[in-house]
Design a protein around this nucleic acid. Structure first.
Length: 103
DNA sequence: CAAGTGACAATAA
DNA sequence: TTTATTGCCACTT
């Protein structure tokens, strides 16, 4: 019900498979261009199990969440690679190629 | 209503 | 390059 969270979940669900989006981008989609932190909070607070592709959400520089996610960065990296996203050794994705266009 | 919190982001050193 | 600091916004208490 908390509109923002719901919007966040909806937005991340719109991310196409094989693409990633940054917290800032999602925040912008949801209507709060500076609420990137809330986006992250939304994912951490009430992740709809099996429904929210949280693994498609990365930092502004393409790095993955530092050990706070679903069991570890390794899992997130594995899921991203599973969808066709190349994750660097530093757990970073090439945003230039995999960042969601937003459309 | 006020204060505290946080999977971020941008800038400074 | 990494680390530290500041600003930010919405949610929780």
């Amino acid at each position: 019900m908390q509109g923002f969270f719901e919007k966040v979940y909806a937005a991340i669900r719109l991310i196409p498979r094989g693409k990633v989006a940054t917290y800032g981008d999602i925040a912008r989609m949801t209507g709060a261009p500076r609420a990137a932190r809330q986006v992250g909070w939304a994912l951490h607070s009430n992740p709809r199990p099996g429904v929210n592709p949280c693994h498609r959400v990365v930092f502004a520089d393409g790095s993955l969440t530092d050990g706070f996610a679903f069991g570890g960065r390794d899992i997130q990296r594995a899921m991203l690679e599973e969808e066709g996203v190349e994750v660097g050794e530093d757990y970073r994705v090439n945003l230039a190629e995999y960042r969601w266009d937003g459309k």
